[in-house]
Amino acid sequence: MELNGSYVLPASTQKIWEMLMNPDTLAKVTPGISRLELESENVYKAIAEVKIGPVSGKFEGKAEVLHPVVAESFTLNVHQNSKIGNVSAHIKMHLKAVSENETELSFAGKAHMSGLLARTGNRVMSGVANTLTKQFFQNFEDELAAKEQV
């Protein structure tokens, strides 16, 4: 499944970068992720609960940040296992300054599913991915707004 999206967030690339690299913030803004723990440098243990179409499940696995170029780009490798099937995703994230206080955050990648998830969820998967993407950016924006207020 292809994963693509981009959105302009009202903050500097440096600020967005910091938020992305902070597991607590990332856990907060990423839909479905309930916990993100730093295991070693750039490697996180991730626990997610996702309901995708007719199947829902609790996922446990690893998220890894590869090739980080500060305030510019990184690659996210995710492997998640669950009783209803496994997901692995490889996503390239790009940050681009639109103006001093605006950053275009875009990502492109692929996700592979197996098991029940692939068999019964596939039909609705791209729709779900779009929804999750929208949520992600919305959450990000909310989080930024919240930080502004503080």
């Binding site: 007719p54 592979h112 599913m113 197996s114 692939a118 068999r119 019964t120 596939n122 039909r123």
Partner: peptide, 10 residues
């Protein structure tokens, strides 16, 4: 190689 329509829903 995943069957993407392996149920009567699909």
């Amino acid at each position: 190689g995943q069957i993407t329509n392996g149920s009567y829903m699909d």
